[in-house]
Design a protein around this nucleic acid. Sequence first.
DNA 1: AGCCGAATAT
DNA 2: TATATTCGGC
Length: 297
Amino acid sequence: MGKEVNMSEYGGGDDDRVSDWELGLPSADDLTPLSHPLISPELASAFSISPEPRRSMTDVNRASRNTLSSIRGELSLSDGVGFKSFDEERGKDKDGMVVEGEESDPDVAGDGSGSRKVRRIDESCDEEMENGNDGGSARTQVKRARLVWTPQLHKRFVDVVAHLGIKSAVPKTIMQLMNVEGLTRENVASHLQKYRLYLKRMQGLSNEGPSSSDPLFSSTPVPQSLNEARGSGHVPMPMPIQMTHPPQMMHMEVMGMAHGSFQRYESSPYNMLQQRDWSGSKFGSVASYQHVTPNDK
DNA sequence: AGCCGAATAT
DNA sequence: TATATTCGGC
């Protein structure tokens, strides 16, 4: 159930890569045993912290699958919909996971190991508000958490847009090519809107007239038939995006952050810190959903 | 109907 | 500010 991914070979070298990758992993002895609680039960109960989500082997296996699938090119946003199992916690599993601190949380980058802060662990159940409506449709749409455009996600977005050319770079197409599980057209549309404004500013600021050196405006014909890639149980192959030109970006620290900068995507320390070599054709960035605390109750 | 893009909302 | 949602046009 769920989703079957036809994992025939993509390139063939994947297994080797994974093996290499595994060499770098800590041995089982180095890891904190699953059974070992990070917070003592007393402490937990004292603070009304939910008593250890208790990771089972099932959980571990699932996380493992997620990681592997992202390695082989399938991105996925931690299931935004419906389920929020606790072990999907941010900052944990999934290799290059970027933790976006919401509100107050200045440390993030620091510790690579050890103490993960215990931040507001609450609301074990906030879905399902009762609907006193009469009649019938019991469809309660669970609200998705806000998508956080991590540098990796954004990079993929930019790559896809660049390779589509400005013309066919519309939300639906972009979404399809990005091939990120859970990413919606609306997500992309919203981001695209902002991105276009950003490009417009860049264009107007640097020099007048449509610069043909900008890949985005050179009307790249859509490569192949990227439509029709769906319908049949065909596994969407991670698109081997390689850019003809480096992404159009400049360091704009000089102009101050008032204008121009598209967030800090280009210079995020996370990039240096934990970006593997995405060069080539494999992708592995992961985005995270931020559960914006709606309202404490 | 579905998608897009701008405007507006959170 | 970043992202979501709404709204009008196609």
